[in-house]
Nucleic acid binder design. Structure first.
Length: 341
DNA sequence: ATCCGGTTAT
DNA sequence: ATAACCGGAT
């Protein structure tokens, strides 16, 4: 059992003096912000920095001041305004969510109700419930994970530590001012308890921070090193004869087992020669990321001058792109200009 | 060149 | 359980 901590009073005092002023924020201590603006900003903030979001938020709220207005917008207009922000599934979910909310007469005011909406997951539902509806939900984003892992000097590496960090974070959430508290945690993570060099000397929580006491704040949270993906290289042959290309079924076991593919070699443990005699023309390389490695495959096109040694000649028009694995689709796509010209 | 980060689909 | 989705920061 870990020692419990009380941080909300000190953190809220700090927030009252140092809260960032942001277009979607209201000042600390006052009534909560408009749920529409909280939702819109939180969705934009998913995987995206505050600096990048500001201009988009202003533009969206000018164009569409309410969720009803946004619900009535053309899909294409919203996609166009979102352009440049990235992760475009967010924009599609944004519209679906705006329409659902409009149909139900307004935003749900509970975390569960919010999380049932498109594009709203564990983080965003808690953030809206806390910030817009003053509910004592615990908001855990990357900032909070970092702050909590340091406060309690959690040595378990992420992502395995996630459930432990959520549990610890829940013990810290106050009943009073949960919205300001949530924003304070994120501001602390963004401005003081930063990933690289945390400013512990000016941190309002330095006195209760275990990592600070142990001098390991900058080393936390630990992360399981992503298995370094080695780069492998190989060749794939587009062996042409008349209007047909050589295709083969890969060996039933192992990588891409049993799927249709253009003959290839050099990257999957097999080191085979070209599937027939031809003068090969280098079309360039396709890159494909597998679970354990990144593959650069050199695409070679040639007209067979003799019998193929493996595979089956398949008429071009009979080749179904959708029947190929992703890697081979990339190869197919790259070859299109050459196969026409 | 590498790190960072929520949600959804698979 | 994990990969796909993108752009910005370091």
């Amino acid at each position: 059992m870990r020692e419990s901590k009380v941080i909300a009073p000190d953190l809220l005092d700090w927030y009252d003096r140092h809260a960032r002023t942001l277009p979607w924020r209201v000042p600390p201590g006052g009534p909560p912000a408009d749920p529409y603006r909280v939702w819109l900003s939180e969705v934009m903030l998913q995987q995206t920095t505050v600096a990048a979001v500001k201009a988009y938020f202003l533009r969206f709220t000018t164009l569409w001041p309410t969720v009803q207005a946004l619900a009535g917008a053309d899909d294409a207009a919203v996609m166009a305004e979102w352009a440049g922000l990235g992760y475009y599934a967010r924009a599609r979910n944004l519209l679906a969510c705006a329409r659902a909310v409009t149909a139900m007469g307004g935003f749900p005011d509970t975390r569960a109700g919010l999380q049932a909406l498109p594009g709203i997951g564990a983080y965003t539902s808690a953030a809206i419930a806390a910030i817009a509806f003053d509910r004592a939900e615990t908001v855990v984003d990357g900032n909070v994970e970092r702050v909590v892992s340091r406060l309690f000097a959690v040595q378990t590496p992420l992502p395995r530590a996630k459930p432990e960090l959520v549990t610890l974070a829940e013990t810290l959430t106050p009943q009073a001012r949960p919205g300001d508290y949530a924003q304070a945690m994120m501001d602390l993570g963004a401005t003081i308890c930063t990933p690289r060099s945390p400013a512990c000397v000016i941190c309002p929580l330095q006195a209760v921070c275990d990592a600070r006491a142990q001098g390991i704040a900058a080393e936390l949270p630990r992360k399981t090193p992503k298995p370094a993906k080695p780069l492998r290289q190989g060749s794939v042959w587009l062996a042409r004869q008349g209007g047909a290309l050589l295709l083969e079924h890969r060996p039933p076991q192992g990588l891409l087992g049993g799927v249709l593919a253009f003959p290839s070699a050099g990257w999957d443990g097999r080191d085979l020669p070209p599937p027939g005699p031809a003068a090969w023309c280098d079309l360039g390389a396709v890159r494909h990321v597998f679970t354990h490695f990144t593959l650069d495959l050199t695409v070679l096109l040639g007209d067979l001058t003799g019998n193929p040694t493996r595979g089956e000649l398949t008429p071009l028009r009979q080749i179904d792109r959708e029947a190929l694995p992703g890697l081979m689709r990339k190869v197919w796509d790259m070859a299109q200009p050459a196969l026409r010209g």
